[in-house]
Amino acid sequence: MEHTKKMSLALISVVSLVYGIVGGGLSGYAVFSILDNGEETTGDTIINFENGSYKEVWEKAAPAVVSVVALKDLGDYYDQFSFFGFPKTVQEDGELSEVSSGTGFILTADGLVVTNKHVVSDAEAEYVVILDDGTELEAEVLDKDSLNDIALVQITGDDDRIGEFPNLDFADSDLISVGDPVVAIGNALGEYSNTTTAGIISATGREILAGGTGFGTETLVNLIQTDAAINPGNSGGPLLNLSGEIVGMNTAVDTTASGIGFAIPSNDIAMVVKSYQEFGRIVRPFVGVRYVVVHENNMKRLGVDVDYGVYVIGDQQAQLPGVVPDSPAAKAGVKEGDVILSVNGEVLTETNTLVNVIAAYLVGETITLEIWRDGETITATVTLEESTQ
């Protein structure tokens, strides 16, 4: 597929990355604010290279890292200016131009690609995937996650390597630690494909408010923070351990500082992929409660005797109940005023809320809630159902 590539500069400000509709925009999220500090690094870090070297990581992973490019016919866009005395564009009708680009990585030999949702946010665009050898193949957006910045793309163009594409494996992101060495690979600035940078995991469990021009804002939780250089265009690229396994997907960068980037943990991505493979779409489970997080500063105001968990409460202004009628929670007997303390023994806290924990389960699975109610602790068994939101 032939297309015209428009060149431009990306302007990074405190609050956003420029996302150009015209002129080769870069797909990226900027951090508005860090909402939760998570686990931070302190002191010096000793990097252990026993599991591999940066060069070995690059040699293993780079063939599976791709550029994800959005293409559009901009003839109508340019032609509108002819009404105001501007020269008519020389672009031929039907000619496709690159309007944005990001990164992705191949997860299966038949060409399933994982990238950020904001990289493929334009529903009117056509998408192509560019392999590490420069081969350009048509691609289809399969689905976008409603709760996280994750999207699945399938390579559809003809290529003899379909079924034999190099692909990457997930590591268990629950096993990573602050100070672990990592490698980021991506389509930096939309121009430098397979740019590789190295650093460490600086923190885990971060919660941020991120956004970019054309994307709006989104709260992202449970993120990995890294000091490996992440640039506009790196969105959707893998963050790798020294075994060349995916520990995260690069997603956002704090544009007010140097060396502060964020990645979605591999376990969160793996659950989305598993859901798609099982249901043919990304399915998110839900319990069916509205809540506020309990902590030592609000427990007295809420009238509870515990300083952790989530307090089930409705939105009085919007006249929305704390327990959604006919939801899994309602069927299990959960009531407004309950404090859900844990899910299958996993304690709920300010940094590990109900939505974070439930994301690790599939629709149809059964969970046990530990609940504080009127000074007593009880349990409720909930069968997760599909979220319709």
Rank of each mutant, 00 (worst) to 15 (best):
L220H: 11
V18L: 12
D44G: 15
G94Y: 10
G186T: 10
A330P: 08
A270G: 11
T156G: 06
V119C: 11
I230E: 06
G248S: 09
D169N: 14
N116A: 11
G214C: 02
K300M: 02
L341Y: 05
Y192E: 13
G211S: 02
N356L: 06
V272C: 02
A229E: 08
P232Q: 04
S82Q: 14
D110Q: 04
M299W: 05
G20S: 13
N48A: 02
V287G: 06
M299P: 02
N234M: 04
G237F: 10
V339S: 03
N37Y: 03
G337L: 05
I46K: 04
G43M: 02
G303Q: 12
R301F: 07
Y19R: 15
V66I: 02
L137K: 02
V15G: 10
R206Q: 08
A198E: 13
Q389Y: 03
N352G: 00
V114L: 15
N148K: 11
D268G: 08
K88Q: 14
L35I: 00
S342W: 05
S82W: 08
S82N: 14
S387V: 10
F32S: 12
M1P: 15
P285W: 08
R373H: 00
T41K: 13
L11K: 09
V306K: 09
I155F: 11
T388E: 15
T4E: 13
Y361L: 06
E346G: 11
L341Q: 07
S342E: 13
V14H: 11
D132G: 13
G345R: 00
G375H: 03
E336Q: 12
G111N: 01
F83M: 08
E218I: 07
F165W: 06
R290Y: 14
I106R: 15
M1L: 13
D79M: 01
F165H: 04
Y361M: 07
L152C: 05
G364W: 03
K335V: 12
N116Q: 13
A188T: 08
D305R: 09
G211N: 04
L302N: 06
L239C: 08
G52F: 00
F83Y: 09
V247R: 14
Y29F: 15
D73A: 03
L11H: 12
T368D: 12
L9M: 10
V178T: 03
A109V: 05
G244Y: 02
E191C: 00
A360C: 03
T204R: 02
G280H: 00
I340K: 11
S258N: 15
V18A: 11
S202T: 13
E140L: 01
N194F: 09
V334Q: 14
D160N: 09
G25Q: 09
V293Y: 06
D36F: 09
A171T: 07
I358S: 13
E50D: 15
M1T: 12
D374L: 06
T156N: 05
D159K: 01
A203Q: 09
A318T: 10
R161G: 10
S33D: 15
L220I: 11
Q319F: 05
R284V: 09
V324N: 15
V119E: 08
R373K: 01
I378Y: 06
V253R: 12
T368R: 08
L341A: 05
A263H: 05
T41H: 06
V363P: 12
D305I: 03
V323H: 10
E346L: 14
G211H: 04
